[in-house]
Design a binder for these strands. Structure first.
Lengths: 268, 268
DNA sequence: CGTGAACTTGACAGAATTCAAAGTCTGTGG
DNA sequence: CCACAGACTTTGAATTCTGTCAAGTTCACG
């Protein structure tokens, strides 16, 4: 039992295609259909299996492709000032990897598979060409960029202002929500991250994570055995975690009707 | 003496236009010229003065426009779980405000002017229309999105893994670098943020900031009197701060020549 | 010149890390 | 199938860092 969404097929093999992909609605080609979708499919030249613990790309590697997670999970991590690795993101099926390299021309961190995974390789120059041809695709791309940005911002929010228990609660709820979006359970799932990964993501130490999980269990908030976790009291966990990230409206792209009202409240 | 880059004109009044704008190379229309630039200029319907401490938009406000900072500085802040405000970003001339709202359809936080400022209001629907017509503009937009994403990621990195002195050093160096990019000094500038803002940005308390500034001064790293700061020993400060964010290559968009090499290093 | 906000400094308490050790799981090879 | 080695996880002190509380000081503005 490895794959995280319990319902997921054990290995949607490297022969999948966008038109039939289970995760298309979450992914970049969500906005496409017909010929445009076929075009996109042929631009996605390669489906690349990445075994657990293998590195999809190194830190500092030149940016050539974006990757769409087809199956499995990834972490991206950067060398932290203090010597360790800071995990900056966790990617699930449908998520895009490599957006943080668009600006710099190289990947700021490395991406490592947390479980046996498959990615779709999107050569960026080819993708850009298609973005220029397909406004709907370009819009979708901006939306996914925006989701990623909002996610990082929210992450910076709680990394900066939340204490240890809030941070862990935030992570667990976020994982659960994302599993739920993918057809799994929001309250019972398998942790693909080790305690060390969780620590590196929350900005805490392994020991703190372990202690917190024990404390949460004592308080009846969750049940955890090895890497299988059940959130028994999501409501209380949410209360503990504080305000959630505001939900990205992934479906409705943009309603074109906005009066140019310019409220300017002075706060003096 | 308010404006941050000492060289800047005191008030590039609301009559400026993109073709003559001092910050165009840093801003969205950097890639445009001629008729396309004029088109963009006419889409930027309004230049809006925002007095110090006034709010450009509220938290949770529906997303209608992006804002380009023409003059002055802004902070964006969100309500933190613990009750206070967490400052999530500082925007300077040429920067875009509101990108974090593209995905959610509403602004996750509020934007407040740190000094008397002027913004260019970009109605997002009109901008999207133009992005569809002008691939160069769209590419530039993605680049700025990417810079913002990389910035947040780097921020999350040090918020998660750095101790208090590193965090403050990181902020001061980042501010200096951005002033330098705008024609000011990287080592001597005016802090438009209050100690409270600095604390809310670094995830520390006002008292810690104050103590750290004093300690840095004792160590000969900097000189600070009120809000005027001079970084005396940038090298040592950099060493203290740890690895900097990798520099976004803002000028060269993308070299179109990338072999599809797929290295797959196992880290077992 | 006075008032209030912003900033600085000190003493103390609490939170989280560090150091240290024991316990548990996983996968390998017999 | 079982035993073993190494990695991962848990738990327990002691230490360090940062926040909290409580002054006092300086600065900006009327």
């Amino acid at each position: 039992m490895h794959a995280s969404p319990p319902v997921a097929p054990p290995r949607p093999s490297a022969t999948a295609t966008c038109p039939t992909c289970r995760w298309r609605a979450l992914c970049l080609p969500a906005a496409l259909a017909g010929a445009a979708l076929d075009d996109f499919e042929s631009a996605v030249a390669v489906r690349l299996p990445v075994p657990r613990h293998a590195r999809l790309h190194a830190a500092g590697a030149p940016f050539g492709h974006l990757y769409a997670v087809l199956c499995g999970e990834f972490k991206t991590q950067c060398a932290a000032p203090a010597g360790g690795m800071q995990v900056t993101a966790v990617a699930m099926p449908g998520d895009l990897l490599g957006l943080d390299a668009v600006a710099g021309g190289r990947h700021p961190g490395e991406a490592v598979a947390l479980s046996d995974s498959v990615v779709c390789v999107l050569p960026y120059p080819a993708l850009e060409a298609q973005l220029a041809r397909e406004p709907a695709l370009a819009q979708r791309f901006r939306l996914m960029f925006g989701v990623e940005l909002a996610r990082r911002q929210h992450q910076a929010l709680w990394l900066g202002s939340a204490r240890a228990p809030q941070r862990l609660a935030q992570l667990l709820l976020d994982l659960g929500q994302r599993y739920a979006e993918r057809g799994g359970s929001a309250t019972a799932f398998h942790l693909s991250m080790s305690r060390e990964d969780i620590a590196a993501f929350t900005g805490l130490t392994v020991e703190s994570i372990s202690r917190l999980l024990s404390a949460f269990r004592r308080d009846g908030l969750l049940n955890v055995s090895n890497r299988d976790i059940v959130l028994c009291d999501p409501a209380r966990l949410r209360a503990l975690a504080g305000p959630p990230a505001l939900q990205p409206a992934l479906q409705p792209p943009f309603p074109l009707a906005l009066p140019l009202a310019l409220p300017l409240a002075a706060t003096a």
